[in-house]
Write a protein that binds this DNA or RNA. Structure first.
Length: 423
RNA sequence: GGAGAAGUGCCGGAGUGGUUGAACGGGACUGACUCGAAAUCAGUUUUACGCCUCAACAGUGUAACGGGGGUUCGAAUCCCUCCUUCUCCGCCA
């Protein structure tokens, strides 16, 4: 979340930046400042009254110790009237704080100055492309047909067991999943990311920490009995590892990676782009997360993009990197690069990674801080990226490498998969 | 799931209603001593918000002893509730 002090001191900038996002409720900014003014006044009143109560209470103790019970009783009635005058103030203060907090949680992050204006995915900017689109055989088919033909993934079986969007991977299909996960994790840990295997259900505080709540309430699966959310990405439990921590500057940067299944309800998204592996309710992803010094976060963002790009290149898939425009960025992000791979049989680009700098938006919610050289406590910046999400990678690997006789694999995967072709 | 015990500062560990934001010990940091180090001595050692101030990591107020609520003039200390940990029993990968 944004810092109230920052909003107060940079009101016009905040409004202008939110405009880049096409944020509709710009008036929230003024409301927040007004509520905060109110809050300060109420807090001053409340503190002053409480101070008097504390002093009087102490005096009562001393009077009673001296045996001056009568005077103590007089003081007590004094406190009683102070308390009754405090009551409405305290109530209003609490109300104001809650309302202020609600409003601040509704403000998305400010886009960085580099973020292009724009309303939708159409306005994203292609930064660069890599790899080359393959020439497929004339009878080439999309991955869902390949998956069926070679018995790699059974979508209908998943329908029976759970529902749509929960595929069952079989035989070499299952092994390919395992190989990719292992490969991605090895690649990340080799670059200094520490591996974690976190819980895939989280509590409410954790979901608030990374910003899934309240923004994406309806997009997460919820276990009502225990009030746990199924994670939509490993970013959630992994970033929260450092919630409420103050780390040493010498411990920076903190680099973490994790493989987890991810669960997304995808409420409201129907249509053609949900076919096969294109959009699932459960999928596998390997995530990278960094917590870094605020002055370094944009360099780290580029570094992470480079990290994912190199990984992408070893998969030998045609890809492109997009700089997202203000209107297409996630709620919590200050700047995001998306990676897309070209699905040759479907003839369209599919998003496989999203690398973002959240600046202090998440760390302010989670109170992830460090002591700087002057021993002052400061918020860290958090970043994360997919490195990588599996399903669409698998879709492209299958489609782009299909031949008359089978499906080949890029060299990087040979040792992990135990062979040079899927079938 | 049943029975019992416990949750205090960076760590250990006191404290069962009134100068306890918190004894004592350890660790860490600063200074002195030393050529340097060890030892020793002195000091420092949480966070959030408010007020004051041009500003302050200067002063001052409020809050925080697992979370939330309650009793009381006053709570780390009493009560309720939730969470977590430990021990025993049960169940089980």
């Amino acid at each position: 979340m944004l810092d109230v002090k920052f909003i107060r001191e940079n009101k016009d900038l905040v409004k202008e930046r939110l405009g880049i996002r096409n944020f509709k409720e710009i008036n929230l900014v003024d409301d927040i400042i007004e509520l905060d003014n109110n809050r300060k006044k109420l807090q001053t009143d409340s503190d002053n009254t409480q101070s008097k109560i504390n002093a009087a209470s102490k005096a009562i103790g001393q009077l009673m110790a001296k045996g001056e019970n009568k005077n103590a009783e007089i003081k007590k009635s004094e406190v009683a009237s102070l308390k009754s005058s405090l009551e409405p103030i305290a109530e209003e203060l609490k109300l104001t704080e809650n309302k202020l907090n609600d409003l601040i949680l509704r403000l998305p992050n400010l886009p960085s100055p580099q973020v292009p204006a724009g309303k939708s995915a159409e306005d994203n900017v292609v930064v660069r492309e890599g790899g080359s689109k393959p020439q497929l055989p004339a009878n080439a088919v999309p991955h869902w047909d390949l998956a069926k033909k070679y018995n790699l993934i059974d979508f209908e079986l998943g329908n029976k067991i759970t529902g749509s969007g929960f595929p069952v991977y079989i035989n070499k299909g299952a092994k390919l999943q395992r190989a990719l996960i292992q490969y991605f994790l090895d690649y990340n840990t080799a670059a200094g990311y520490k591996e974690f295997q976190p819980p895939i259900m989280v509590n409410e505080a954790t979901a608030y920490g990374t910003g899934q709540l309240p923004d994406k309430e309806g997009q997460m699966y919820f276990v009502t009995e225990d009030k746990f959310y199924l994670i939509p990405t490993a970013e959630v439990p992994v970033t929260n590892i450092y919630r409420d921590e103050i780390v040493k500057e010498s411990d920076l940067p903190i680099k973490m990676t994790a493989y987890t299944p991810c669960f997304r309800r995808e409420a409201g998204s129907y249509g053609k782009d949900v076919r096969g592996l294109n959009r699932l309710h459960q999928f596998d992803k390997v995530e990278i997360v960094q917590l870094v010094h605020p002055q370094k976060s944009y360099n780290v963002l580029e570094e992470m993009v480079g990290h994912v790009e190199k990984l992408m290149q070893t998969l030998e898939l045609p890809y492109r990197i997009l700089k997202l425009c203000g209107g297409d960025m996630g709620f919590t992000s200050a700047q995001t690069y998306d990676f897309e791979v070209y699905s040759a049989a479907q003839q369209k680009w599919l998003e496989v990674s999203s690398v973002s700098n959240f600046e202090s938006f998440q760390t302010n919610r989670m109170k992830i801080r460090f002591k700087d050289a002057n021993n002052k406590t400061q918020l860290l910046h958090s970043l994360n990226g997919s490195s990588l999400a599996l399903p669409r990678i698998v879709a492209c690997l299958l489609e782009n490498n299909q031949t008359e006789s089978g499906i080949n694999l890029p060299e990087a995967l040979h040792s992990y998969f135990g062979g040079s072709s899927v079938v």
